[in-house]
Design a protein around this nucleic acid. Structure first.
Length: 523
RNA sequence: GCCCUUGUAGUUCAAUGGAUAGAACAGUUCCGUCCUAAGGAAUAGAUGUAAGUUCGAUUCUUACCAAGGGCACCA
């Protein structure tokens, strides 16, 4: 529906002589301003020095010449806004429309979480996990061909695996936690080198993290990509290094090999081969991204923690060096999202999360305490760039009364009506047009038609937090409808109202499903 | 010191180059024969500071102030 109205405006502007106009159609905050609104007259009136209101008047005339039955009323308001009121038939059509998102088939790779196999996931990983998971669901719904990928930093050459090995053999202390010691007891490291012991222990940690991610978080990955196997052992690292050398992008200094990233926008050159002959992780990262593009992905999305944001510049430099394809966002290739860190507070007293201070809260504990639905909602209602504070006291206090339950409750109420209706005879008011005479019913229908727009907005802007806002608004509309419209009354069932309730229920459930949150039938 | 991110109601978060800056929780006042009161109605409350660009800035620019993160031949 939105696209159809946009097209009408664009055609009208072209008829008025505007060359390739761009129209922004908004959803007004207030239903008094219609179903859609545009500021096109303010934008284009200015360009030809005509007052916005005058321009708007002419534009409306043009639109009326071609407009079909979609629009009931158009009015010019305020500084020159043009407000569109949908006809009942257009609203009905949009409300019950099958969600026919265009299958673009765009090949998208989204890599997220990718926690090191040296310990369990902490709450900071939750951001990457739930953002990535929901974004992947939305992109897929919006028509992309999405591959979800987890990168396992298990290279035997890495320092972390060696350190882990030392701990396993009793010659080091790093990464040591009670959970790790328990895992160590179940394994036999006799005769192992540091590398072997580290790899063995890392593999056990990875297996338990994977189980938690899949079962505890409900996050699915298509590809679990092993750095050690796919990049180190396969020789991909050596190959990419050779390529960089051939292209004369490296030089030697102090016994190490450096990559000339400065020439491509980085702050300084980076070491790729250490003076002891081993490769840095940076090489693997380059080889890994090259591999993603080699596999045919057009858009490559990385979700990294804020502690890795220093790597963005160097990866972008490499992208320029190797001519990686442009992603959807022109300036960034590949697309890197930085998940800001999560800080903790308990009753307003903020705490810095620190392994040393021993107050790192594991994601497992959080999910166990609050349940996956609440945790997912709390994490995804905030933009990724927000330095979110997870207030434990507040979360506990709100665990009985919070926006998740509000949305779920609205769903359960609607389900309850649908169940009650069985066996009740049909009543009198059974036309959509009659039902939407009631303002809250019309507002609910209008809110339902917004669903595809919200999905496309999230898909284009990666604004996952818009989903929780939408779910809340939809639930508010549903509750207002519930208050104003009796579906079962003395006459029998108002079938048009029932149909609207069912549509609202479906849309709410679909929105929550994108967030990975359950829609209970009963609460 | 340099680089990145962020400053919005009491709190946790939204939003947009434009029409009255939205929710939730907390506060105040109401609603109980009524399809689930985990609900509803009303009320109060916010764009860090100072400039600039603009017809219009909370949004863009700059400076300052504040918070977080990064500045390894660790990952």
């Amino acid at each position: 529906m939105k696209e159809r109205i946009e097209l009408v405006i664009i055609e009208a502007l072209e008829a008025m002589g505007v060359v390739s106009p761009e129209v922004a159609l908004e959803r007004p905050a207030d239903s008094l301003h219609g179903d859609y609104s545009t500021n096109a007259a303010l934008v284009y009136g200015k360009k030809i020095s005509v007052s916005p209101r005058e321009f708007a008047g002419k534009l409306v005339e043009k639109i009326l010449e071609t407009s079909s039955g979609d629009i009931e009323k158009i009015e010019v308001a305020g500084a020159g806004f043009i407000n569109f009121f949908l006809s009942d038939s257009a609203l009905e059509q949009a409300t019950y429309k099958v969600r026919d998102f265009v299958k673009t088939g765009e090949m998208v790779n989204i890599e997220f979480i990718s926690t090191n196999p040296t310990g369990e996931l902490h709450i900071g990983h939750g951001r990457s996990a739930f953002f990535g998971d929901t974004l992947a669901r939305v992109l897929a719904l919006a028509g992309a061909n999405v591959t979800r990928e987890f990168y396992i930093n298990d290279s035997r050459e890495s320092n972390q695996i060696r350190e882990l090995g030392k701990t396993a053999l009793g010659t080091g202390e790093q990464y040591k936690t009670p959970e790790l010691e328990e895992k160590m007891r179940a394994l036999d490291f006799s005769g192992n080198s540091e590398e072997e012991a580290g790899a063995k222990l890392a593999s056990a940690i990875q297996a338990s993290n994977r189980k938690f991610i899949e079962e505890g978080l409900g996050v699915h990955f298509d590809v679990w990509y092993s750095e050690d196997k796919e990049l180190r052992a396969s020789g991909a690292n050596d190959k990419i290094l050779e390529l960089l050398k051939e292209k004369n992008l490296t030089y030697e200094k102090d016994g190490a090999v450096w990559l000339k990233t400065t020439e491509y926008g980085d702050d300084e050159d980076r070491v790729v081969v250490r003076s002891d002959g081993t490769m840095t992780y940076f090489v693997a990262d380059i080889a890994y991204h090259q591999n993603k593009f080699d596999r045919g992905f057009q858009t490559v999305i990385d979700v990294w923690g804020a502690d890795h944001h220093g790597h963005v510049k160097r990866m972008q430099a490499v992208g320029k060096m190797l001519g990686w394809p442009k992603s959807l966002r022109p300036a960034d290739q590949p697309i890197v999202f930085i998940a800001q860190l999560v800080s903790l507070s308990d009753g307003g007293v903020s705490k810095k999360m620190s392994k040393r201070a021993g107050n790192v809260v594991s994601l497992r504990d959080l999910v166990e305490e609050f349940g996956i639905d609440i945790v997912r909602w709390f994490f995804n209602e905030k933009a990724l760039s927000t330095q979110m504070t997870f207030d434990m006291a507040l979360a506990r206090e709100q665990s009985e009364k919070n926006p998740v339950y509000y949305a779920q409750y609205a769903h359960a109420r609607l389900v309850s009506i649908v169940e009650k209706v069985r066996g009740v005879k049909e009543g009198r008011t059974n036309k959509f047009a009659d039902v939407v005479q009631i303002p809250s019913a019309r507002a609910l229908a209008s809110k339902i038609t917004e669903f595809p727009e919200v999905v496309m907005h999230v898909a284009r802007e990666y604004a996952v937090q818009a989903l929780t806002s939408y779910a809340t608004m939809l639930a508010i509309s549903a509750n207002a409808f519930y208050r104003d419209v009796r579906i079962i009354n003395d006459d029998g069932v108002n079938t048009a109202a029932l149909a609207l309730a069912i549509r609202a229920k479906e849309t709410l459930a679909e929105t929550l499903a994108l967030l990975g949150i359950h829609s209970p039938d009963r609460m």
